[in-house]
C-alpha cells in the first residue's frame, strides 16, 4: 500500500506541470501558433513566482497568516509573467510573421540565461536556484484534518505532495474545456487555427485571436513552471528539465483535446515514476537487463510513437498551425 500510495502521489504531482504545459500548447496551437517556447516560458513563470515568494512577500504578516493565499498570489505572478513573456513570442510570430520554431527557440535560450542573471542580481552572485519557503505544501490541517487521524497511506497519497497548483489546474482544465468547446470565443479561436482566411472572411479578427491564444498559452505555461518548481523539491532552478518539450509530446498524444491531454499527462508521469522505481522494486520484471530503469524510461515515448502511428489518420492537429497569417491568401 505504501508503494501504491507513493506512486499515485508522485504521478499526480509531476502530471500537473505536464498538464498545464500541454494545455498551454493546446491554446496556442488551436489559434494557429506553434508554441515551442513553452520550456522558456515555464522557466520565466517559475522565476518570478519564486522571487515573489522569497523576496517580495516573505516577511509580511500575510505570508504568516494566510500562506496558501500568498501561494495563490504567486501563481498569479507566475501566470502574468509567463503571459507577458509569451507576448514577445507572439509579436515575432504574428506581427513580424517570423518562423515560429526559430523565434520560440530564441525564447527558450533566453529564459534560463535571464533566470540566472536576475537571480544573481536580486539574490546574490552565484546563486541561481531559489529555495521556496517551507509551508507552501497544503497540510491536512487546512481541511480540518490531522496527520494522526488518517492512515499513513492516505496521508502519503493525498497530502504529502499536495500543492495549491493541483486543485487549481483541475479547475483550469475544466475551464479550458468549456472555453474551447462551449463558447463563441472557443469556436473562433479554433477557426483561426484551422482556416484563418475563412475566419477572417466572416469578420473574426485573426491577429487578435492569435495574440489571445498565445497570451493564454503563456499564462498557463507560467503557472506550469511554478508547479514544476514546487514539485521539484520546492526549489526554483533556471531550468525545467525538458518538461516544456515533454508537454508538447503530451499535447500531441492528447490530440489537442483537454481531457485526452489530462490522460496523456497522467500516463507520462506514471511511467516516469515507474521508471525511477524500477531498480528499487524487485517485483517489476527486469527482462534480464542490468539497468532496466532505462527501458522503463523509454516506454512513454515508444507508446506515443505507436499510438500516433495507428491514430495519425484521425489526428486533429490544427490545419493552419505554424503558418503566419497572410490576409492576401484568401
Amino acid at each position: 500500500m505504501d508503494i501504491v500510495s507513493i506512486l499515485v502521489s508522485k504521478t499526480i504531482v509531476y502530471a500537473i506541470p505536464l498538464l498545464l504545459g500541454a494545455l498551454a500548447g493546446m491554446f496556442s496551437e488551436r489559434s494557429g501558433i506553434i508554441n515551442i517556447a513553452l520550456e522558456g516560458i515555464m522557466v520565466f513563470g517559475s522565476l518570478f513566482a519564486a522571487l515573489f515568494l522569497t523576496r517580495g512577500i516573505t516577511d509580511s504578516t500575510l505570508a504568516a497568516t494566510h500562506p496558501q493565499f500568498v501561494v495563490f498570489l504567486a501563481i498569479l505572478v507566475a501566470g502574468i509573467s509567463g503571459g507577458v513573456y509569451s507576448l514577445i513570442f507572439g509579436f515575432a510570430a504574428i506581427k513580424l510573421k517570423a518562423n515560429q520554431v526559430i523565434s520560440g527557440t530564441a525564447l527558450n535560450i533566453f529564459a534560463p540565461a535571464f533566470a540566472i542573471l536576475l537571480a544573481y542580481s536580486v539574490i546574490s552572485l552565484g546563486v541561481s536556484s531559489i529555495r521556496l519557503p517551507r509551508g507552501i505544501v497544503m497540510s491536512p490541517e487546512i481541511f480540518g484534518l490531522t496527520i494522526d487521524s488518517m492512515p499513513r497511506w492516505v496521508y502519503t497519497m493525498f497530502f504529502s505532495s499536495l500543492y495549491l497548483t493541483t486543485p487549481i489546474s483541475i479547475i483550469i482544465l475544466i475551464i479550458a474545456y468549456i472555453t474551447l468547446y462551449k463558447t463563441k470565443f472557443g469556436l473562433r479561436l479554433r477557426a483561426c487555427g484551422e482556416h484563418p482566411q475563412a475566419a477572417d472572411s466572416v469578420g473574426i479578427k485573426v491577429v487578435r485571436m492569435r495574440y489571445i491564444g498565445v497570451f493564454i498559452s503563456g499564462i498557463l505555461a507560467g503557472i506550469g513552471g511554478f508547479a514544476f518548481a514546487m514539485a521539484n523539491g520546492s526549489n526554483h532552478e533556471p531550468d525545467v528539465l525538458g518538461y516544456g518539450f515533454l508537454a508538447l509530446a503530451v499535447m500531441i498524444f492528447g490530440n489537442w483535446k483537454p481531457f485526452k491531454i489530462l490522460f496523456g499527462a497522467l500516463f507520462f508521469s506514471l511511467f516516469k515514476t515507474i521508471a525511477v522505481f524500477a531498480s528499487t522494486l524487485s517485483f517489476l520484471p527486469s527482462f534480464g537487463l542490468v539497468k532496466v530503469d532505462n527501458l522503463y524510461k523509454t516506454l512513454p515515448y515508444i507508446i506515443t510513437l505507436i499510438v500516433l502511428a495507428f491514430t495519425s489518420k484521425k489526428s486533429r492537429a490544427p490545419k493552419a498551425e505554424g503558418i503566419p497569417y497572410d490576409p492576401g491568401q484568401r
Binding site: 502521489s9 521539484n232 521508471a275 525511477v276 522505481f277
Partner: peptide, 13 residues
C-alpha cells in the same frame, strides 16, 4: 544537483 527522478526515488525509499 537537485533532480526530480532522484526525489521520486527517495520518496519510494
Amino acid at each position: 544537483w537537485p533532480d526530480t527522478d532522484l526525489e521520486t526515488k527517495m520518496d519510494l525509499w
